[in-house]
C-alpha cells in the first residue's frame, strides 16, 4: 500500500498556472450557466388562471349570509299579502258598519219623513268616510310598493341564492375565465400551447446543457509540466485558453443556439399572446363571467335594498293596523250611539 507523498508536488510556476486556469474555467462555466439561468427566468409566463372568486364578491356573499340570506327575505315577502289583507279587512268592516247603519237611517227617514228629524247618518259619517278613503288610498299605494319589492326580489333571487352558497359552490357556479379552459381548441390557444411546449423543451435542454458544462473536467498539470520541461517557462494563458476552447467550444455554440431559439420562440409567443388577449376580450365566455360577477354584485346591493324595503313595509302595515283598529273603534262607537238614539226615537214615535 505504498502512497507516494510527493506525487502531487509540482514546481511553483505550475501550481500558479493551475490556479489561474481553474479560475478561468470557473469564469467560463459561470458565464454560460448564468446566461442559461437568465433565459429560463425570462421565459416564465404569468399564470393565466382566472377562475377564483374575486375578494369583493366573497365579502358580499358573507354580508348576505350574515343578514339571514334568502330565507329571511323570502319569509317577509310571504307575510306581506297577509298583512295587507288584515288591514283591508279591518277597514272594510269599519266602513260596512257605517253603511249598514246609514242604510237603516235612510229607510226610517223614508218611512217617517219629517218626523224622523235627527241628523242624517250620511252627514255625520262624512269625516269618517273621508278618513276611510285616505286609508284606502294608502293601502292601494302599499300594494304598488309590495309589487315593486316582489319584482325586485324575483329579478335577483337566483343570484342572491348563489351568493348564499358556500365558497366552493359559488366558485364553481361562476363561469371560469381561464383562457386555456374556455378557449379550448381554438387555433390561437393551440398555437400558443405548442409554443409553450417548445419553450419547455428549450428549458429542459438548458438544464441538460448546464449539467454537461459543469461536469467537464480536464487536467492541465501534465501540459504545464511538459511546457516547463521543454521551454523552462509556462505560457499559461495560451495553454489555458486553447484547452478551454477545445473543451467548451461546442458548449458555447450550443448555449448560443439555445438562447437564439428561445428568443425566436418568445417573439412568437408575444404575438400569439397578444392575439390571445384580444380574443379573450371578445370571448363571450369571459364576458359571461363578467356578466355573472356584475349580477352577483348587484344582487348583493338589491338584497340590502329589499331587506330595508321589507322592514319598512312590515312596519308600515303593523303601524297602520293600530291606526285602523282605532278607526274601527271610532266607527263602532258612533254607530252604537246612533243605534241607541234610533231606538229611543222609534220609541217616542210609537208612543206619539
Amino acid at each position: 500500500k505504498f502512497a507516494d507523498l510527493f506525487e502531487k508536488m509540482v514546481p511553483m510556476l505550475v501550481q500558479q498556472s493551475l490556479n489561474i486556469a481553474s479560475s478561468r474555467k470557473a469564469d467560463v462555466v459561470n458565464r454560460l450557466v448564468g446566461s442559461l439561468r437568465e433565459a429560463t427566468n425570462l421565459s416564465a409566463l404569468e399564470d393565466l388562471s382566472g377562475d377564483s372568486v374575486p375578494q369583493s364578491i366573497l365579502e358580499k356573499s358573507h354580508a348576505v349570509i350574515q343578514q339571514g340570506g334568502l330565507n329571511s327575505i323570502e319569509q317577509l315577502i310571504k307575510d306581506l299579502p297577509e298583512l295587507l289583507q288584515r288591514n283591508r279587512e279591518i277597514l272594510d268592516e269599519s266602513l260596512k258598519i257605517l253603511n249598514d247603519e246609514e242604510t237603516t237611517d235612510n229607510e226610517l227617514r223614508a218611512k217617517f219623513n219629517q218626523r224622523w228629524n235627527r241628523t242624517p247618518s250620511g252627514d255625520l259619517y262624512k269625516p269618517l268616510r273621508a278618513e276611510g278613503g285616505n286609508f284606502r288610498n294608502v293601502l292601494d299605494k302599499a300594494v304598488q310598493a309590495d309589487q315593486v319589492v316582489k319584482e325586485r326580489f324575483n329579478t335577483h333571487c337566483e343570484m342572491i341564492a348563489l351568493l348564499c352558497k358556500p365558497e366552493n359552490e359559488l366558485c364553481s357556479a361562476i363561469p371560469s375565465a381561464n383562457p386555456a379552459k374556455t378557449l379550448q381548441g381554438s387555433e390561437v390557444v393551440n398555437v400558443l400551447k405548442a409554443q409553450l411546449v417548445h419553450l419547455d423543451e428549450i428549458k429542459r435542454d438548458r438544464e441538460v446543457l448546464e449539467g454537461e458544462i459543469k461536469s467537464v473536467t480536464f487536467d492541465m498539470m501534465s501540459k504545464f509540466l511538459t511546457a516547463l520541461a521543454q521551454d523552462g517557462a509556462i505560457n499559461e494563458e495560451a495553454l489555458s485558453t486553447a484547452e478551454l476552447d477545445t473543451r467548451y467550444g461546442t458548449y458555447t455554440q450550443r448555449v448560443q443556439q439555445n438562447l437564439r431559439s428561445q428568443e425566436e420562440i418568445l417573439a412568437q409567443v408575444q404575438t400569439s399572446h397578444q392575439e390571445f388577449a384580444a380574443l379573450k376580450q371578445s370571448n363571450n365566455e369571459a364576458n359571461h363571467r363578467d356578466d355573472v360577477l356584475k349580477k352577483l354584485a348587484s344582487a348583493h346591493d338589491s338584497y340590502i335594498e329589499i331587506s330595508s324595503n321589507l322592514k319598512e313595509g312590515t312596519k308600515f302595515y303593523n303601524d297602520l293596523t293600530e291606526i285602523l283598529l282605532k278607526f274601527q273603534n271610532k266607527c263602532s262607537d258612533i254607530v252604537f250611539a246612533r243605534k241607541t238614539e234610533r231606538e229611543e226615537l222609534l220609541k217616542e214615535l210609537q208612543q206619539s
Binding site: E312, F316, I323
Partner: peptide, 16 residues
C-alpha cells in the same frame, strides 16, 4: 322610501 308615510294621515286627522 317605498311605502306611504303614515305621518300625513295623522296630520290630516289633527287638522280635521
Amino acid at each position: 322610501s317605498l311605502y306611504p308615510s303614515l305621518e300625513d294621515l295623522k296630520v290630516d286627522k289633527v287638522m280635521r
